[in-house]
């Protein structure tokens, strides 16, 4: 029951991260200029005539308002899912600190994220605020993955522990996780620079903007290559000990190696085709998924479990 809920919360959070990116590329983030209401109403207006007196109706756009509002609704649903997970943890796992604390912490960060949504809107989508919003999402999803994985460990049969020497690789995965986070920061910074430039010069095409962004663009490319090399190195090292890997580790490795190349291709595609919205959303989403899968691998290796099948 608990682990199902934790798993659903994790998946739902990933869907929400996708929706968040979608809202961003649709340019609908300010579809509702106020928060939590939308043009002073709990249900966004269908027509400009429904906007209450005294509320500025100048920017009203039906489509953008509803896109933003559905994002908020999805946020509420995910928030409630995570809250339920935390309540279940409170009821059932008060003595299992490894589950209890991260579950409570996830709910705490969800509350902060909800409040921070208002900051993002009132800052008029300030690039730093949007990046913090994304980072909070990664923290939440990281905690949920941790909780879910440990919940599964609890409920699965106790397996015989066979020590395999993963210590070195484990440290490399830790480094990889750190570099991924740095890469996500440079990614959000690159995005910010593009936004600042396109606000300043609304007539520049995305391509021209990219060429003017400068050093952060190179940095993002270089660190991207570093992530790729590090990933290949880690996967290779684990592959050498493949008889000691359990099926979950193997699954993670397959996902990781596929994701890194898809992500590289999408990144290059953005440079070549001038940041099409679809690629932009997927680039952000794959980054967060990649972070999650590498984290899962790290947790799995840390718990040193070998299936005895």
């Amino acid at each position: 029951m608990f682990r199902k809920f934790a798993l659903i919360s994790t998946l739902a959070t990933y869907i929400l991260i996708f929706i968040g990116g979608l809202v961003r590329v649709a340019g609908a983030g300010l579809g509702c200029p106020d928060w939590p209401k939308c043009f002073g109403r709990w249900i966004p207006p269908l027509d400009v005539s429904q906007i209450p007196a005294g509320v500025n109706a100048a920017g009203f756009n039906f489509t953008l308002a509803w896109i933003e509002y559905l994002n908020r609704l999805a946020g509420v649903i995910v928030g409630l899912l995570i809250l339920t997970t935390a309540i279940l943890a409170l009821k059932n796992f008060r003595d299992k600190k490894i589950i209890f604390y991260p579950a409570i912490l996830a709910a705490f960060f969800v509350a902060i994220q909800g409040w921070y949504g208002s900051v993002v809107v009132s800052s008029q989508l300030n690039p730093i605020a949007v990046s913090v919003h994304m980072f909070l999402a990664l923290i939440i999803v990281g905690l949920l993955i941790y909780v879910t994985q440990h919940a599964y460990y609890l409920e699965s049969k106790q397996t015989q522990e066979k020590k395999a020497d993963f210590d070195k690789t484990k440290n490399w995965i830790y480094v990889l996780l750190a570099v991924i986070l740095i890469q996500i920061i440079t990614g959000t910074q690159l995005r910010s620079q593009i936004e600042i430039l396109s606000e300043k010069f609304p007539l520049l095409f995305e391509m021209e903007i990219l060429s003017r962004v400068g050093v952060i663009n190179y940095l993002h490319t270089i660190i991207g290559l570093a992530v790729t090399i590090l990933t290949i190195f880690v996967v290779y090292n684990l592959f050498l000990k493949k008889e000691n890997l359990n099926s979950f580790m193997r699954l993670n490795l397959i996902l990781i190696i596929n994701m890194i190349f898809v992500q590289l291709a999408v990144g290059v595609g953005m440079e070549v085709f001038g940041i099409p919205p679809v690629l932009q959303v997927f680039h952000m989403w794959i980054a967060s998924l990649f972070f999650g899968v590498v984290l899962m691998l790290y947790i799995e290796i840390k718990t040193y479990r070998i299936e005895n099948d």
Binding site: L22, V25, A26, T63, L64, V278
Partner: peptide
């Protein structure tokens, strides 16, 4: 799932652009 999400993105972005 990926194809569906990509199509969803295209539709939503297109709707947003049209509305603007």
């Amino acid at each position: 799932v990926i194809v569906c999400l990509a199509m969803l993105t295209l539709v939503v972005v297109d709707m947003a652009n049209r509305s603007r």
